[in-house]
């Protein structure tokens, strides 16, 4: 075991998979000599000569050429420095990466991982804080993964790299270094598509992912067992673990969903639709979602007002419990 934060866990997974499979290459802005602006790729450039590329400053080029590499025998791991820069190459992701297997009837595949830091709360510049997971979940042919802790980050990233299809890997920037955990040095995999029941409970199901998960955990600690809450870390947004969500809501009859993304068409909407379809008769009250409002992400002096807070999550829990 070794103590690691999320960024170190990402680095360990990259290193491990590059050692394991010579087809894996890493490319992106500043990922080589500099080791990445967050140090996620630290040391890889030296350890794997000719397999780690500092690219020109061009996100479309990074993703577009990664698609070409993926169809011609490599397993590229592209880093987009901040998730706010994913929209330039979105055409490449939506129109090509996600459709190659289907359009070629399986003759070509696109085993590509796009890693990108996402989320608010660190007083960053404009377009550095958004949560766009629902946009990618709304793109058929993509997988969308969001770890919330070092252990999951390592195991999920290894699975993403071994996955035969394109995976968007969202790294919660706010908690990159906030959580330290003992994690195994040797390889292990966490399957894509499986949620994690972080704590079991009977009164209420609380669902979150990424940086919001830590906030929920901290809140539950603060509330000191006032309610018996089942906390679910969704971990994979697409394809998400419907079964775990439904079974939990059937048991508790109450549900609160937290995400940093804006409300309308946020992923909570999809979860609520699934609960409506499969667990409606178990509900004691409406499902509550605690999200950001439908406005552009503000500059940082207002970001804590914009993002879900522990106080707002607590209010959401109380609303459901007191219904």
């Amino acid at each position: 075991m070794v103590v690691a934060n999320i960024i170190q866990a990402v680095n360990m997974a990259l290193k491990q998979e590059m050692q394991r499979d010579s087809k894996v290459v890493v490319l992106g802005e500043d990922v080589g000599v500099n080791g990445g602006v967050f140090r996620a790729t630290d040391g890889l450039y030296k350890e794997f000569p000719g397999r780690v590329f500092d690219t020109p400053l061009a996100e479309l080029g990074i993703v577009g050429t990664s698609v070409g590499m993926a169809v011609n025998g490599l397993k590229p791991i592209a880093e987009i420095q901040f998730s706010g820069f994913m929209y330039g190459p979105f055409d490449q992701i939506f129109s090509h990466a996600a459709r190659i297997r289907m359009r070629s009837r399986g003759r070509f595949t696109c085993p590509l991982v796009i890693r990108t830091p996402y989320g608010g709360g660190i007083r960053a510049l404009e377009l550095h804080g958004e949560s766009g997971e629902a946009i990618f979940a709304h793109t058929p042919g993509l997988k969308m993964v969001v770890p919330s802790n070092p252990y999951d980050a390592k195991g999920l990233l290894a699975s993403a790299i071994r996955d035969p299809d394109p995976v968007i890997f969202y790294e919660p920037m706010r908690i990159y270094r906030a959580i330290k955990q003992d994690i195994p040095e040797k390889e292990y995999l966490i399957p894509i598509g499986k949620a994690n029941i972080v704590q079991e409970g009977n009164d209420l199901t609380l669902i979150a992912w990424g940086a919001s998960l830590k906030m929920c955990k901290d809140l539950l600690e603060e509330m000191k067992g006032r309610y018996s809450v089942e906390l679910i870390d969704l971990r994979t947004i697409s394809p998400y673990d419907r079964e775990t969500v439904i079974n939990s809501v059937k048991k508790t009859g109450r549900c609160v969903i937290v995400h940093e993304a804006i409300q309308t068409c946020g992923f909570a909407a999809e979860l609520i639709a699934a609960i409506n379809e499969d667990a409606m008769l178990s509900l004691h009250g409406p499902v509550v979602r605690v999200t950001s409002p439908d406005v552009p992400f503000p500059l940082y002096r207002l970001e804590n007002d914009f993002l879900p807070s522990m106080a707002r999550i607590k209010k959401g829990i109380e609303k459901v419990m007191e219904f």
Binding site: V25, G50, R51, L60, G61, V63, G64, T65, S66, V67, G68, M69, A70, V71, N72, G73, L74, P76, D91, Q92, S95, H96, I100, R103, S104, F108
Partner: peptide
């Protein structure tokens, strides 16, 4: 034969990437 591109020009970086992979793999 890669599937034809319907959006204009989007296949140009694919050709760059596949050619780059050929260089890396010495294929």
């Amino acid at each position: 034969n890669f599937p034809i591109a319907i959006p204009v020009g989007t296949q140009i970086p694919h050709a760059a990437g596949a050619g780059w992979a050929a260089t890396i793999r010495k294929s």
